[in-house]
Amino acid sequence: MIAIILAIVLGLVMISMAIAALTAYRVRAAVLASGIVSLIASIIYLLLAAPDVAMTEAAIGSGLTTIIFFYVLNKIRRSDV
């Protein structure tokens, strides 16, 4: 029962973060919001008894992808597109 309530709360936070990523004015905030979506997705995978998928999602989805977005964003700003 607690797991279901936790999953519903996390799902609501996830959807609101996804909407924030779409509507955010600054790109940096949008990248951070999409990182949070991945982080919460990894917790939900853990609740759904898929720990190996959760590990991949936490490391790649919220860790590496967010930072790669920041690297590319910095590079694009520098070369002034």
Binding site: P51, D52, M55, A59, G63, L64
Partner: peptide, 16 residues
């Protein structure tokens, strides 16, 4: 749980 891809990704976050 886990394996090659997961372990490799975790090592890469360390380098990150």
């Amino acid at each position: 749980p886990g394996g090659g891809f997961q372990g490799g990704a975790i090592i890469a976050t360390g380098f990150l």
